[in-house]
Amino acid sequence: MTTPVDPTIRVASNEPDPPVGLGRRLRSAIVSVPGFFLGALLLVSLLAPLIATHDPLTPNPLAKLLPPSSEHIFGTDPFGFDVFSRTIYAGRLDLTVALGSVLLGAAIGVPVGVAAGYLGGTVDSVLMRLTEVIQAFPPILFAMLVFAGAGNNVATLIGIIAFFNVPVYVRMVRAVIQPIRDASYVRAARAMGHGHMSLIWKHLLPNSLVPVFAQFAVSSGFAIQMVAGLSFLGLGVEFPRPEWGSMISAGANQIVFGQWWPSIFPGIAVFLAALTLNALGQRLRKAVLVGGPR
């Protein structure tokens, strides 16, 4: 038994806007200020050879830890690398890994989460135990083993980080699917002859994307952190290949001496990238979240 629901509390809006299809809504979420920002970040990384003022891989031993100047606009680091050029170049690797691992993680995690939430029972238990096993792996140790076997390259790096993202998406999607699996509208759809696949595609997946998009920024932040952590151990990204996380850690010791520039500029780059992905994730989330918060 339920009672009449009070729409005044639920609908906190004025006269509804005319509805727009999901495809159009997603498109307009991507063609937006955050979408433009992400495009700009990608473009800068892509055009790094044209923008960079110095070779990012050749240090000048005579120009260590120089403060920002007209010659080195972001200064130089303890090895004599030009911080500006390396910050620009690093975007290539970091954005690839962040986006790649997030998309790959979601691409695997979402369908598995749907399966766990929709099928329930034994399938669910087995999948949940599996995600627990993955989450119990020490990430760095696991990465070292995989790198030892599969070689030190960017694809392996993306794969490893995506691997650790998968359980997050699985659990999130499952948590969304489970309560709506028995919702009346899902039952109605089944009574109208929806098979499992079309039911999932039409009714369950759109709902499950809401938290997934919100998770994007968190996952990409995690990805950049992982890259930095691994490169610190000489895994995934070998020195002196430019990468934001390792640039920050290389300069971190200098901050106490007032030499802030080797860390701050790549730090700002990470911040901008995370902010952009977060804003874009929120846009996408809102595009899916129509018709009320349920």
Partner: peptide
């Protein structure tokens, strides 16, 4: 169904 609000996909 009993509760029409639950009987329609909110999205």
């Amino acid at each position: 169904f009993q509760n029409p609000l639950g009987a329609f996909n909110p999205r």
